[in-house]
């Protein structure tokens, strides 16, 4: 991260972005998924690559072509609509999630900000096992007239074998 483009902690832009991320997490953890969709830019590219177990010389292990998520706005809307039906059995009874977002690093980018954040997400549901998901998100937040919109999110999960039976929520 270069000093010239870095947006430092405590500056007005940084505070705006932190608020945006907290607001987003609040919407996700309170089932306000329609409101969450309002935060997406029309060109949203929402993806979670598959990560292989590798040695350091092979790089990060994230595969360029494979994914657990490869969504655009239309497929995100479909997922949100699915969860709002009364037959989305994966989430009946409801999943309780908590998005804890930290380690936020911001850099100026073309038309907005490149934001890196760490997450720890917990999921609890009925008598199912307690699920933990940790990792990092790389976001592209675009400045628009009425605020910031998410144009791209890449989710780097800290797991090579997913220890959970589904990913029916959003990161």
């Amino acid at each position: 991260m270069k000093n010239q483009t870095r947006v430092f902690h405590g500056t007005p832009d940084y505070c705006r972005i932190v608020d945006w991320l907290y607001d987003e997490a609040y919407l996700l953890d309170h089932g306000r998924l329609q409101d969450w969709l309002e935060l997406m830019a029309p060109e949203i590219d929402y993806r979670m690559p598959v990560r292989r177990a590798v040695v350091p010389k092979q790089g990060s292990g994230f595969d360029e072509e494979s994914a657990f998520f490869a969504d655009n706005l239309s497929s995100l809307k479909t997922k949100v609509e699915r969860l709002s039906t009364d037959q989305a059995w994966s989430d009946q009874p409801v999943s309780l999630t908590r998005h804890m977002i930290s380690n936020i690093l911001v850099e100026k980018a073309d038309g907005g900000f490149a934001v890196t954040s760490a997450f720890l997400i917990t999921r609890v549901r009925a008598d199912s096992p307690y699920d933990f998901f940790s990792g990092e998100r790389h976001d592209l937040l675009k400045s628009v007239v009425d605020g910031l919109k998410l144009a791209k999110r890449t989710i780097f999960l800290d797991q090579t074998v997913l220890k959970s039976h589904n990913l029916s929520f959003f990161f």
Partner: peptide, 18 residues
């Protein structure tokens, strides 16, 4: 495939549940 099957897919999420 990814949008419909696998752990994040709108079909397979419910299969695993059952």
């Amino acid at each position: 495939y990814v949008r419909t099957f696998g752990p994040g897919g709108i079909f397979e999420q419910d299969d695993m549940e059952n």
